[in-house]
Amino acid sequence: MSIQTASDVPMIELKNVNKHFGSLHVLKDISLSVKKGEVVVIIGPSGSGKSTLCRTINRLETIDSGEIWFDGAKLPEEGRELANLRSQIGMVFQSFNLFAHMSVLDNMTLAPTSVRRVPKAEARAEAMRLLERVGVGDQAHKVPAELSGGQQQRAAIARALAMHPKAMLFDEPTSALDPEMIGEVLNVMTELAREGMTMVIVTHEMNFARRVSDRVIFMDGGSIVEENTPEAFFSHPRTRRAADFLQSIQK
């Protein structure tokens, strides 16, 4: 019997998770474990439940049965405990969701100052550092609507990073972007992955998935159909459904 060290505990663990939207069974007995520092990409056709799965991890979607664990703690159901746990998980949305009434800089400092009680000056310095890092430092004093989609999404990533999350969730981060802006966002994400951030990414960017991920999860009809290494998955998928899907997206 070995002593479990902290690094043996998975960062994210789903055990037999089920979810229904009315009569629709959107997550069917999902079990998934993500190690610390691992980058997992979830792909699948639309309506396969991949976004829902991603959103259950910080309980933006509730589940009907099963368990979700984050860094050795069971996901709380409500209240301050839930808010506290969420503050440790960064999330990036398809539609950026920057707060429209605040400057980019205020977007960055809101959570650190109000949730973590970081002194204002410190939070601002950290925010500027992160904005520089994702390449939008010069946009800090503008409001979100003045930025391009790509800039907004990079700022949104920086906003999540400002909380020093233990893991990051990406829910189709490039789907709402014009093609010429996808690259700049993926570059930021690639760099994050290199630095060892634990990431769960729902995406349609297959090249990115192949290049950056440690593991690919293929979902269809609410179930995990295939789990594989990116190399194996994209060159010879084990399942028929994955092969069909890969076929269908190749133009």
Partner: peptide, 15 residues
Amino acid sequence: INPGQIEAARALGLT
């Protein structure tokens, strides 16, 4: 208000 911003606030850990 765009409902997405409410989700973003939640995801950041705001009460």
